[in-house]
Design a protein around this nucleic acid. Structure first.
Lengths: 143, 143
DNA sequence: GTATTTGGTGGACAATATCAACCATATTTC
DNA sequence: GAAATATGGTTGATATTGTCCACCAAATAC
């Protein structure tokens, strides 16, 4: 198989299996969340004064998709919105107590997957991988 | 940011951007294919005596999904089916002339993306990346 | 032979992604 | 300051991708 299809395959397969494993782990923990929910909650938890726009930029997803996911999360009482003092068009979203609690468990579940993923990998190998992935990502983005 | 979210992010973002870029390239070439179509056509082209089951195994996707994609591809006259002499339940799928022609162009489009992806990367870095990704994939699969 | 497994199909539906129109506020331009 | 434009966000509509389940027919195991 050519080098091109190797790298293509590596990216697609790894991402797909990782998604499947993560989803399964989250479900085994009995958490009522799907993949995108978890990812967005992560970002909200990690970003101070997080707005929808910030999530759009960080995730690269369509803003309509983000709007809907946020609405769902709010409907599940996992996040709350507060007016943004800097811009009346937008709101600042943050995790609710329930959201924090759920994410604590989600982190455990995901940690299991990452641990499995990285089994037998040395620290510098992981760094190398993340570094190379970052460079590829930059290559695709700058355009 | 922690090492765990680094690797998670690296995988998700890289795969997402790669998918977006590939899709855009395919569309710019004016090809009436979406991501899964291209991936399956690749496999069919590369696999001698390719059956649906083989695609299911190689792709890791649900067999119902594969059935439908194959039906669509057959509807577009990009593939053809022939009886499998080894097993009357299954059929051997192969690219039609039209399918071959389309894939020749799709390969060009994807080649552009891979070239961009790998810009500035040394050959051994690419090998390292593919190797590490393969090990991670094995970790997730063996379970 | 019957029982079980396997390759494949179809229905139903959930999750994810895309595109365009639109509203309210912010920002720029003059 | 008013008009024009840009930005953050929402909604509708629709496409793509993924999942689960029941089922059929042929293959394999017993």
């Amino acid at each position: 198989m050519s080098k091109e299809s190797d790298i293509r395959n590596a990216i697609w397969q790894l991402a797909f299996q990782f998604k499947v494993s993560s989803k399964k782990a989250i479900r085994q923990y009995g958490l009522p969340l799907n993949g995108m929910h978890v990812r967005i909650l992560h970002m909200i938890g990690a970003t101070p004064a997080c707005t929808a726009h910030r999530i759009v930029q960080a995730s690269g997803r369509d803003k309509a998709q983000i709007t809907r996911l946020l609405k769902e999360l709010e409907g599940m009482s996992l996040i709350q919105r507060a007016p943004n003092p800097d811009d009346k068009r937008s709101q600042i979203v943050s995790l609710s107590g329930k959201g924090e609690a759920l994410m604590a468990r989600a982190r455990e579940a995901e940690q299991d997957v990452v641990t499995r993923l990285l089994k037998g990998m040395k620290k510098d190998e992981i760094d190398t991988f993340v570094g190379l992935a970052g460079r590829m990502l930059d290559n695709l983005r700058e355009e």
